[in-house]
Amino acid sequence: MSPFKDLKLALEVLNQEGTYSEGDTVIGTLSFSLKSDTKVKSISVKAKGDANVHWTEGIGEDEETYSAHERYFKIKEYLVAKSPGGTVLPQGAHNINFTLKIPQGEMPSSFKGENGKIVYMVEAKISRSWRWPSSVTTEIKFVSKSFPSIHQAMHPLTGSVDKELGTFSKGQLQMTASVNRGVCFPGETLSAYARICNSSSKNVKPKFSLHRKIVYRVKKHTKTSDKVIFKMVGDPITPRSEVTVPCAVKIPVDAVYTLHNCQIISVEYYLKVYLDVSFAFDPEVVFPLLVVPSNLVHAQLNEEVGHI
């Protein structure tokens, strides 16, 4: 039975979101109590970041398993250093403070998905001779400072498509679509619209769908999940008419951030604006979107206002 009671790790909160990023210092306390004097070999604390993917395909003899791992950093400090004869800790309560500095460098944000995860954690371990070590871990929420092309994505995105109908109907469809920004944050609402000129003989229905695409990679093998996380269907547009359809695109509050700087997991978002045409290929316009922390969007907006 372990003599270490109430073994806990407590970390100081650096910001309102409780997140950590590259270059931050993790400040914490390891606490425990001892009913009697106890000899230890060492007490250490470490922080590390790892990405893992895993999935299987096929069944029986044809089953294949794919897995991959990436390590971003591992740092370790001794709170009680190793010594030849060990160190005796006195009976009573113990609170040991520590600091661990996360390295600089581009690292991906925390992520958990069906076939992979990116996890950052702090672990403390108490080692004794001829005994199993006592340990405690706590996970930290890591948010990368590296997101691509936020400045360029702050501007409106516009695209157009034309389609000539034939076989089952005649005429032409024209659509111009736009979204107010190519970058957003979880919980935000973007403004989009589609201007449709229906010069055909058919009813068409405008649709807006927000997709989250996750790709897991193991060498040349990939496993992809493409999920619609928001959808809006407009009213049918009658033949020989021109209509502008607005759409408030709601980004889910729990949307994970765009993930572009991990070799084995990526997360992308795109908004698809299209016309549902029966018995024909749907004309569509697709906009890539970046989902990033709200403070990055607000900082960029403030910077642009300051330049006006």
Rank of each mutant, 00 (worst) to 15 (best):
T19H: 06
S21M: 08
I229R: 06
V136C: 05
F73V: 06
S266E: 06
V285T: 11
D50Y: 06
F4A: 04
T19Q: 05
S33G: 06
T19A: 13
L290H: 13
V183Y: 12
S241W: 00
F287D: 00
P239I: 03
V136Q: 14
F4D: 02
L100Y: 00
S200C: 03
I27F: 03
D162G: 01
G187S: 02
S201L: 06
F4Y: 14
F281I: 14
P236A: 05
Y216S: 00
I126D: 02
Q16T: 00
A93E: 02
D37T: 07
A192N: 12
S135P: 02
R212I: 08
N95L: 01
L296P: 11
G23C: 00
M175D: 09
L290T: 04
E70S: 06
G86L: 02
A81C: 00
H260Q: 11
L301P: 02
G60D: 09
I237F: 12
I229T: 03
R128F: 09
K272P: 03
S44I: 11
Y78I: 01
A47G: 13
F279W: 15
N302C: 08
E268G: 12
D162L: 10
T137H: 04
F230G: 04
Y270M: 11
Y78F: 15
S191C: 02
D226P: 00
S42N: 08
V88F: 00
D254K: 14
F281D: 06
R131C: 12
V249P: 04
H298A: 12
K250I: 13
N295V: 12
Q172D: 13
G105S: 09
G92E: 01
L7V: 14
G18A: 04
F147C: 10
V179M: 05
L9N: 08
Y274N: 09
S31C: 04
K125W: 00
A177K: 08
M154L: 15
N198D: 03
K112S: 14
V218W: 10
Q91L: 09
P283G: 08
E284W: 07
K101T: 15
L296I: 14
L79T: 03
P252C: 06
D37W: 05
K231Q: 13
Y257H: 07
V161W: 10
E106C: 02
I251S: 07
M232R: 15
Y269A: 09
R131W: 15
N302Q: 13
S110A: 13
V305F: 13
I251K: 12
G23K: 02
K272R: 15
E139D: 07
L271W: 07
E123A: 10
K227G: 03
R71I: 03
E22W: 01
Y72S: 11
N97F: 00
E188P: 01
A47Q: 09
R240N: 05
G116D: 05
S67R: 12
G166L: 10
S225M: 13
H221S: 15
S266A: 07
S149A: 11
P252D: 08
S36L: 07
Y193S: 14
F147S: 01
I196M: 02
V143S: 05
V291A: 04
F32A: 04
T87G: 03
V161Q: 15
L290N: 10
S134Q: 04
L165P: 11
G28E: 09
Q152A: 12
Y269M: 04
Q172I: 13
I150M: 11
W130Q: 13
D226G: 08
D162T: 14
W55Q: 06
K101C: 00
V161L: 12
R217G: 00
A255H: 11
S199W: 06
